[in-house]
Structures are given as structure tokens and as C-alpha cells.
Design a protein around this nucleic acid. Structure first.
Lengths: 326, 326
DNA sequence: CTGAAAGCGCTTACAG
DNA sequence: CTGAAAGCGCTTACAG
């Protein structure tokens, strides 16, 4: 029992496959009697017919899939939520979101060729040749970092810069002058960390503050304690962390060193993960309003689908969530 | 420039499409001169040829994709790591892992028909009709909860039961007799929480301990504090939490109530997320050895691919990670 | 308003 | 050792 085809539906309904296709794809312009329409729909439902996506993709060169390419590290709850909301925004238009975690040695081209997606959304930059190949194949290619972002050309992502700047401005407003930057030990994160740190550097420069002290901070209490000691030795009074995970480690390091936060050292993270508000002390952090981002991405995909013009960029929607750690 | 087809490669190499196909799919049994082989490979590489997956899927009825269906809530770092490792294990055999977050209103059948996957792996139970339809279409269907798991038939998942039991046994060995169960407020988690709690209940019964006190615990300090107060009023001295997120909330609740952990109340979580070791105090938790699970899943998929017999189940590989909270 | 026919790009018996 | 041909299931001009 391999499956019902449109030919089966046509035979059962006493019409041609053409008519079945017209009825089922809701083709406009062609008028088909209401009676025929009804019969075709009814038969299709009764037989449990679902069109072969492979055949449709082969014929039209396009599927109803949106492929999201994640980098090869655990992305955390924020991106997960973004993906969920993106899927929500797209499902109403018959589009399904499929996610690929960038692991495995398989070339990217195998993947998008296998999926024939309507659009590809990259959560980290694509290699130029991949980008070109996808565009050439008529696939809409989007990135969450903004199109201007070309790390190979040395161009940082605006939103990442802004994150670092927000952290600094909040702390500077509270009188801090000497900053530490808690750099993630996972090397794969460097691509984002670089831009966030750059944002911190620039903000410090603008405020005529000294350069931040950069220190790698592992996600272990002992590692973090070592880093914290080093920070304080160098006169740091406030730490901007790469993200909440790293910030949580700094908090743990401070506790291990019997230091109090924010009195001995203030800390601000990035992401506002659920654990942030449960930390000791509750973590001040920068949240990226993912609802806005998700809607914007969905709108971009749909605009392309409709041949409409691109929606305006909603801004980065960053927000400082003040709790007790800074 | 729509794309290079096998016909292009054939023409350029001066052979037929048949030969191109034979060479490129590495077909055994058919002998083709080494010289021809070389020429075809060279031409394909030079032209940047990659076969159309849609055409191949239509012809063979199968793709090189493994589709993972996640439930519609954020799954957290543990599942993310599992997916990464699964992709690693499968990529060597030319299989790519694609993930669908179970959001959106689109029916599951649209999805697997669009992807024509080699295998589908469910991280939450499938509806019976979906299961049947996929099997009928010749797709290998696997679940991370074990095949015996049929919640609609009231059958709990072994591994989930065992998690709860492990938590209780650890605490009972430390002299605790009256347990609280920190139940997640996110209703979508109920399907797992139910089985874990059942494991706790059974373990209590076996040890002739009183029934656990179940209390929903939100991921906010105030919610958690309320729950903690209630637990202690009822004489609870140790809390088994649904997972580390909930356990972190309990810890925050204890701090808010000026209570000490583990002296006033011990806590044990599930998952061993990175934040667990950074908690105050560091969280004792049950870790699910995902490396083992990932390898087992990969082996299952590959065994089916090769027509080999199923690998033996490696056991649940649960482990209690003792830190300071219990 | 509806049907016969071509063709998307591949794989695979089948025939030489 | 290699090629001509069929066919996977669909969509879509084109012809009635």
C-alpha cells in the first residue's frame, strides 16, 4: 500500500488529474463547477490523499519548507523560542520550519538540495560560495544577523555591538569605571563574542573609560573563581559577560571567593534565560526581544513569497532587564 | 542558471546518463572502466554537479534525511546535545538530521510527506494514525521513549520511572523520609512529569515511605517561595524536582525564605544542565547519559538502513551526580 | 468548464 | 562495458 496518488483521486471522482490538481491547489482564474470541486475534495479526504512533495518539488522546483541552519553549538532557550515563534508565524501560510544543527561533516549543499526549501535562514554567517549557490538556485537566503553582516569582510553585526554597548552604559550609569569582559571558553562562540566585546570596547572608548579587561571564564566554579580573582586584582568592579551562562559562572565564582554581588563586583549577562531570574543574586541582563525578531523574519519570508516589498527592519529591540546583580 | 543536471555531466564526459548515475552512486556489480569513472567524477566536480534530491526522492521514494520531531516546548541543552551527537553519528553514512519543533498548526503528515525521510524519530509520542501512516509509507519510525511507551494505553516510559526512583533512593539513603515533588507549571511538560512522579511514588511505596507531596513550582522566585513554604509546612525535608530548571527555582525559593539547602531542605534535579553546577548550592541531579542514547538511536537507524538486526538496548544510562544540594 | 500530454531529473531493468 | 527508454507523481501550458 504505497500511497494514494492524484490519479486515484481523479479516477474515483470521475475527472482528470488536471482537474484534481486545479481544485486541490486552489487555482484561481480557472472556473470549475462547485459540484466538481466538492466531489474532488470529498474523494481526496476519503482516500486520505496527500500530494507527493517530492513530485511537486521536482515539478515546481520549490517546496513548502523553510530551512533554518543553526551553528554547531547548543543555542539555548532564546533561539529555541525564536524558532517556535517563527514556525507559528509561517504555519498559517502553509510553510513548515525545519531546523538543521550545523553538526556533522556533510556539506551544506547536500542539505538544501535535499530539502529544496522555499527559504533558508542562517543563524550564523554562510560561506560565500554557499550563499551564491543558494541564490543561484532561486532560494531566498536570510540571516538573523542582518544582511550587512559579513565577518569575512571584517564587518561586525550591528545588533551584537549594541548588546555590548548596552551592558556598558548600564554599568557606567551606576558609577563603574573599570570593566571586565567574561569571554566564553567555547571557541565556537568566538564569532559572536568578538562583536559583543567590540561593542563593549567602543562604548568604553566613547565614555572615555579604560579598556575592558578580557578574561576567559569556563562554566565550572573553580575556573570562574580564578577568573574572578584575576578581575579583582586588576581593579575591575563590574563584569560584562558574553551571555547569561557565563554570567552565572561569574556569580558562582564570586560566591566561591566569598565576595558579594553587586557590592564587590557587579555582573550583567545577555539573553535573560529562565535561570537568570533564579540566580543568586537575580541576574541583570540584556534581553533580545525575540517576538519582534521572529515576526520580522516571518514577514521577510512571506513578503518574498508574495512578491511584496520587504518589511521595514524593526530595530534590534534590545532591552536591559534590571535585577540585583548590577 | 538553474542548475547542473546529470545530463550535463553525461554530455561533458561523453557518456550516457546511465553511466553517470552508476559512477556517482557508486553502484556495485556493474563494472565501468577506471578511466570512465575518473572522467565522470572529474567532470561532476568541475561542473559543481549535485543530484536533485527531489528527483531522487521521487524515483526511489526515499531521501537521505532523518527527521526528528520535537515536542512544542523548549527542549533544553540536553536534547540539543543529543541531536548534535545523533547528527554526528549519522553524517558518516550520508544521512542528514533535520529537526522540527512541534509548533505550528500544520499536520504532521504534511511534514513527513514533504521531507520523505529515511527515518522519523519522535521525542514525544505520535498519534496512532500518524504512526500508522508513516509505517505504511515505509518510513522507519523510532521514539526516544522506547517502543513499549504508549501513553494513550496508560503505559509509562521505563526511563522516566527510573529517573524518579533514582531521586528517591538517593535521598532515602541520606535519611529523608518525607518527600515533596516539584511539579512543572508548564502544562505541556505533564506528559513526562506524570511518569517521573509515578516513579517517585512507586519508589516511596517500595521503601514504605509516605506518599510524596506534590506542589506546582513556577520559574519565578515568588512562586517558588510559596511552594517551598507549603512543602516545609507539610513536613517535607527533601524535594525531588521535575528537572533542573524547576530545581533551580526551588533553590531560589529556599534562599528567598532564608532557608538553607540541604540542611532545611534537600533538592535533587534532573538533566545536569550547565547551570546545575553553578547553582547555589551546586545542584545534585540525575543525568541521562546522552552519548549512549545518541549512539543507540544512530545505530537503530543504520541497522534498518543495512537491513541488519537491531542493536541491543544499552539501558537508560541514568546516573546520579552528587553535588551539595542533597 | 475539462482533458491529453509534456516534462521536472533521476534510477534502473533491459538490451546490446 | 555502455546506452535507449520507462516511469516515479505532480503541474501547467495548450487544445478543445
Amino acid at each position: 500500500m504505497p500511497g494514494i496518488t492524484s490519479a486515484d483521486v481523479a479516477r474515483e471522482s470521475g475527472v482528470s488529474r488536471t482537474t484534481v490538481s486545479y481544485v486541490l491547489t486552489g487555482r484561481h482564474g480557472v472556473s470549475i463547477s462547485e459540484e466538481t470541486r466538492r466531489r474532488v475534495h470529498e474523494t481526496a479526504a476519503r482516500l486520505g490523499y496527500a500530494p507527493s512533495a517530492a513530485a511537486r518539488a521536482l515539478r515546481t522546483g520549490r517546496s513548502d519548507l523553510v530551512l533554518c541552519i543553526l551553528p554547531d553549538w547548543p543555542v539555548g532557550p532564546v533561539i529555541e523560542t525564536l524558532l517556535d515563534q517563527l514556525a507559528d508565524g509561517l504555519s498559517g501560510r502553509g510553510l513548515s520550519v525545519l531546523v538543521h544543527h550545523g553538526r556533522g561533516t556533510r556539506p551544506l549543499s547536500d542539505l538544501w538540495r535535499a530539502v529544496t526549501p522555499r527559504a533558508v535562514i542562517g543563524f550564523a554567517p554562510f560561506a560565500d560560495e554557499d550563499l551564491l549557490a543558494m541564490r543561484r538556485a532561486g532560494i531566498q537566503v536570510l540571516g538573523t544577523l542582518g544582511e550587512e553582516h559579513r565577518p569575512d569582510a571584517g564587518l561586525p553585526a550591528e545588533s551584537q555591538l549594541e548588546i555590548g554597548a548596552l551592558q556598558v552604559r548600564h554599568l557606567a550609569a551606576r558609577g563603574h569605571r573599570r570593566f571586565g569582559y567574561a569571554w566564553p571558553t567555547d571557541e565556537r562562540l568566538g564569532i559572536f563574542a568578538r562583536d559583543r566585546l567590540l561593542g563593549v570596547r567602543r562604548a568604553c572608548a566613547e565614555l572615555a573609560l579604560p579598556e575592558p579587561v578580557v578574561q576567559p571564564v569556563g562554566l565550572e566554579v573553580l575556573d570562574a573563581a580564578t577568573a574572578v580573582r584575576r578581575f579583582l586584582e586588576l581593579g575591575v568592579t563590574a563584569v560584562t559577560a558574553y551571555n547569561d551562562d557565563v554570567a552565572l559562572a561569574v556569580l558562582a565564582g564570586l560566591r566561591a571567593e566569598q565576595l558579594s554581588c553587586p557590592d564587590d563586583c557587579a555582573v550583567v549577562g545577555v539573553d535573560d534565560v529562565p535561570a537568570a531570574r533564579l540566580a543568586a543574586p537575580p541576574l541583570t541582563t540584556v534581553s533580545q526581544s525575540i517576538g519582534v525578531q521572529a515576526r520580522y523574519l516571518a514577514a521577510l519570508v512571506l513578503a518574498d513569497l508574495d512578491g511584496a516589498e520587504k518589511p521595514a527592519h524593526p530595530g534590534h529591540g534590545l532591552q536591559l532587564v534590571e535585577r540585583e546583580s548590577a
